[in-house]
Design a protein around this nucleic acid. Sequence first.
DNA 1: TTGCGGTCTCAAGTCGGCTTGAGGTCAACT
DNA 2: AGTTGACCTCAAGCCGACTTGAGACCGCAA
Lengths: 133, 133
Amino acid sequence: MWQIGEAAAKVGVAVSALRYWDERGLVAPAGRKAGARWYGDEEMHRLAAVKLLQDTGMMSLDEIAAIVGGRSRGDWRAAMKSRLAEIRAQRERLAAAEGFLEHFLRCPSEKPIVQCPRMRDYTDRALRDDEAG
Amino acid sequence: MWQIGEAAAKVGVAVSALRYWDERGLVAPAGRKAGARWYGDEEMHRLAAVKLLQDTGMMSLDEIAAIVGGRSRGDWRAAMKSRLAEIRAQRERLAAAEGFLEHFLRCPSEKPIVQCPRMRDYTDRALRDDEAG
DNA sequence: TTGCGGTCTCAAGTCGGCTTGAGGTCAACT
DNA sequence: AGTTGACCTCAAGCCGACTTGAGACCGCAA
């Protein structure tokens, strides 16, 4: 059993965040002793799951609560599938940004973004995509 | 030459965002006619570059301005390299979340996160990692 | 000449996810 | 007995990146 400070350190977040997650219904402590929260093994794993999903930067606490809390009301499965698709899309965006920055760092051109044809490839594509969508 | 509305549509953001980017020094219009902003070819590419980087969700407008605006004061190169490393790390985080959610959707267990060993792999790793760091 | 769509500025509001501060309890040391 | 240190609650504050609302201007068409 872990008290809030140790639990927060293990999960890699602030103590105040754990209290907030409790309040918002994501992960409640296994119990309390003299008012203080105590987290068990099961709770630690649920906390880690929250962190894993939250670190994507793409899910609200409510959505995460639906997964981690086990409350399956409504069309959470559909919502989750669309999140999965968005995560894949985001990976592609990150890959693009990575390529862009990598080339930017190496490009000898003085105004790379507007001059270098390699870099304009990225922005051309973005402008064409948005024209379509 | 494009007026703000068309430019915003092409780039895929709101008109108010383009005005905000102008105000914050990211991309200014090529010129004005009767007060209205007009964007040229070069500006469109710079706007697209802003969107590309901003969509990572990992860079502030100030950092993006340093890249897109061409003002290279200070150690922006070092900052950019660390951003690049963070983007790569984020891609791994997304891959983990993807695997987690994929299995969660298919797992027949009633409380997958705490019961399924395949899912506990993810959270175990997270708890161990944070112990180290 | 009246109306319409698109533009403008400026100040204030919004959102999620915490963080911070004030004021207090509790158990363990010295 | 007093002093840490870790915990508690509750309300308010913070942050970035916009968004919204009010009030006004511009050019063109019916």
